Simulated assay, not measured.
Amino acid sequence: MTREEEVIRAYVARYRRLFEERKGISDDLSALDKEAKAEGLDPKMLRATVKALEVEAAARDRIDQTFTAYLAAAGGTTAPDGATEGDLL
């Protein structure tokens, strides 16, 4: 076997192992979603909460403000007190 073949086989083995680990993690997350749902919780909201907690507070505030502005501009909600549509965008 050539060095190139050995390197390729090693990479293929690593990919296979990581794909299997990813499947296991995916299965674990699915089971966790089912457990949360059985407790009456919303798995999508739990995942969103985890993602939000990974973002720094200042960045999260900017994201929330931008989302609120887009939602208001699209007619999904009213603008914050005293704000006009121009202030939001």
Rank of each mutant, 00 (worst) to 15 (best):
residue 43 P to Y: 03
residue 41 L to A: 13
residue 73 A to H: 05
residue 68 T to K: 15
residue 11 Y to C: 00
residue 16 R to T: 12
residue 81 D to V: 07
residue 20 E to V: 05
residue 11 Y to F: 12
residue 85 E to Y: 13
residue 57 A to D: 12
residue 70 Y to W: 08
residue 41 L to V: 06
residue 23 K to P: 00
residue 67 F to W: 09
residue 7 V to E: 04
residue 59 A to H: 12
residue 2 T to A: 06
residue 41 L to I: 02
residue 85 E to A: 14
residue 41 L to C: 04
residue 60 R to G: 01
residue 57 A to R: 12
residue 33 D to P: 02
residue 43 P to E: 06
residue 45 M to H: 07
residue 10 A to W: 01
residue 33 D to C: 09
residue 65 Q to T: 11
residue 52 A to V: 02
residue 46 L to R: 12
residue 14 R to W: 02
residue 27 D to I: 05
residue 23 K to V: 07
residue 58 A to N: 10
residue 69 A to K: 04
residue 80 P to V: 07
residue 47 R to S: 11
residue 2 T to W: 01
residue 54 E to A: 15
residue 32 L to N: 02
residue 54 E to Q: 15
residue 41 L to W: 09
residue 42 D to H: 05
residue 13 A to W: 01
residue 71 L to C: 03
residue 22 R to E: 11
residue 74 A to Y: 07
residue 34 K to S: 12
residue 43 P to R: 03
residue 51 K to M: 10
residue 58 A to I: 05
residue 60 R to K: 14
residue 52 A to D: 14
residue 86 G to F: 10
residue 13 A to T: 02
residue 79 A to F: 08
residue 22 R to L: 13
residue 82 G to I: 09
residue 9 R to D: 04
residue 43 P to T: 03
residue 63 I to M: 10
residue 64 D to Y: 07
residue 31 A to W: 10
residue 1 M to E: 01
residue 80 P to N: 09
residue 24 G to I: 03
residue 37 K to R: 14
residue 1 M to G: 11
residue 29 L to T: 01
residue 47 R to P: 02
residue 18 L to C: 01
residue 5 E to T: 06
residue 84 T to Y: 05
residue 79 A to T: 14
residue 21 E to W: 03
residue 57 A to C: 01
residue 25 I to E: 07
residue 70 Y to G: 04
residue 76 G to E: 12
residue 77 T to C: 14
residue 26 S to F: 06
residue 6 E to D: 09
residue 14 R to F: 01
residue 63 I to W: 04
residue 67 F to Q: 12
residue 17 R to W: 02
residue 17 R to H: 03
residue 15 Y to Q: 01
residue 84 T to I: 06
residue 52 A to N: 15
